[in-house]
Each structure stands twice: as structure tokens, then as C-alpha cells.
Design a protein around this nucleic acid. Structure first.
Lengths: 105, 105
DNA sequence: ATAGCTACCTTGTAATACAAGTTACCTTTC
DNA sequence: GAAAGGTAACTTGTATTACAAGGTAGCTAT
């Protein structure tokens, strides 16, 4: 059940994480997990990033590092910011609805 | 996106609705929608009820009515109440996590 | 007996989390 | 210079679930 509850919500959280600052995949993972997500993995985050990239929501910078392969940094573009706003509205409505139901004795 | 956000969450809400009182499918639908869900339909609720019934979470009463076919009333049994508790814990953790991320400046 | 209502149920599709595996680049050590 | 080890990107396959659309069947009223 835990897994299924995430669907769609994780996407909004990723948008929020890269709203203003560039981050690459591993940073995004760490930020999400440090906020309380249980154990988001690469198998989850990569398909999601690719999906959002195809929807044209990011500015992307590829940066070479001294260690290992290049890193791909993501940040929202204007369309991404709009999408984040849409998510926030949906989320606010959803969590209030659910909490309302849960608090009926 | 809206649709995907529901996944798994709706199940918990249905459990809550029939926690203490018997309700049949249409009542469950109406209660959910009246609390703010957009437009849950039968195509959503029936597979869900059948799923939960197979997991043995309900007591079920079939009642004949004067109008039309019988109604199938659902209420949680002990296992269902335990499952609801699990959902509530997961949900509380999830919505706090998401709100925490969303409120970072 | 036909129409209309109500209720239950089935089938098929699309979306998405996640595990498990792959490719590739760089440094360090032998 | 070959091997080992680390990091980062990406791919493939599976299970789950919301939902549309359609189907079956009982009852009442005309």
C-alpha cells in the first residue's frame, strides 16, 4: 500500500526540490529521503526525471567533474514552475479532503 | 496527474467510511465525493471493494429492498480495522513529509 | 410486456513505483 | 598498463490501481 500511495505525489516533490536550484539525481534522492521518504531509489527517480524532461519542464546543465562521469543538473523552467503550481493546488485539495474524512469519528 | 495522486489513498478512505457503519456502494461513493473528491465513479469503487473483500477486511450484509436488486452492505471487521490503522499511520507520515518539502522556501 | 430505474459486476487501458541490471567514465593501486 | 573500485547515467520488466465503458439482472409503473 505504501508504494501505491506515492503515485503522482513523488513527481510534485521532485519539481519542488529543483524549483530554484540546480540538483543532480543523487542530490534529489538524498533531499527527498532526508525529508522523510522511506527509501526512494534510482529505479524510481530516473524514469521520473526522464518523464519530466520529455514534458519539457527543466533547464538542464551537464557538468564534468574531476571524479567519474558527468553530472546532469536539473532546474525548473517556466513551464515547470507552472506545473509545480498545479501540483500544489491539487495536493492541497487532496490532503485536506483526506484529512477531513479521516477525522470524522 | 490528479488521477495518479489518488492511488492507494482512496483505498484508505473507503476503509474509513465503513469503519463503524454499514454502507453500500452508492453511499460510499456519495460520502467520498461530498468530502471533496472530484468525481469518483463506479468503475473505481467496485474493483476496489472487491479487492478489499478478497483481502477479508469486511463484514458483509446483503439486504433486499423494495426497489430493485439487493444491496451489499460493507463494514470493517477486525482485520479491516487493523488495516485502517496501518493506512492512517502511513498517511500521516506521507502528508507531513510532503508538506514539509512543499514549505521549504 | 415494455420502459426505466437501481445495483452489482467485468473488461481493458494507462500511469507509475521499484527492483535489477547495464554502460561508461574516472582514479588508484599493483 | 591492467585490474579494481567508485560514481553517475540509463534500461527493462513487473505489479498495482484509477477509471471509462459496457453488461447483467431485479423491481416498479405504465
Amino acid at each position: 500500500m505504501q508504494t501505491q500511495m506515492l503515485k503522482g505525489i513523488l513527481e510534485g516533490c521532485v519539481l519542488k526540490v529543483v524549483e530554484n536550484d540546480y540538483h543532480f539525481s543523487k542530490e534529489i534522492l538524498e533531499i527527498l529521503n532526508s525529508h522523510g521518504f522511506n527509501n526512494i531509489t534510482e529505479g524510481t527517480i530516473f524514469p521520473l526525471l526522464i518523464r519530466l524532461e520529455k514534458e519539457n519542464l527543466f533547464e538542464i546543465k551537464k557538468i564534468k567533474t574531476e571524479y567519474g562521469p558527468h553530472r546532469k543538473y536539473y532546474r525548473l523552467n517556466e513551464k515547470g514552475k507552472q506545473e509545480l503550481k498545479n501540483f500544489e493546488e491539487s495536493w492541497n485539495h487532496l490532503y485536506k479532503t483526506v484529512n477531513h474524512i479521516m477525522k470524522e469519528e
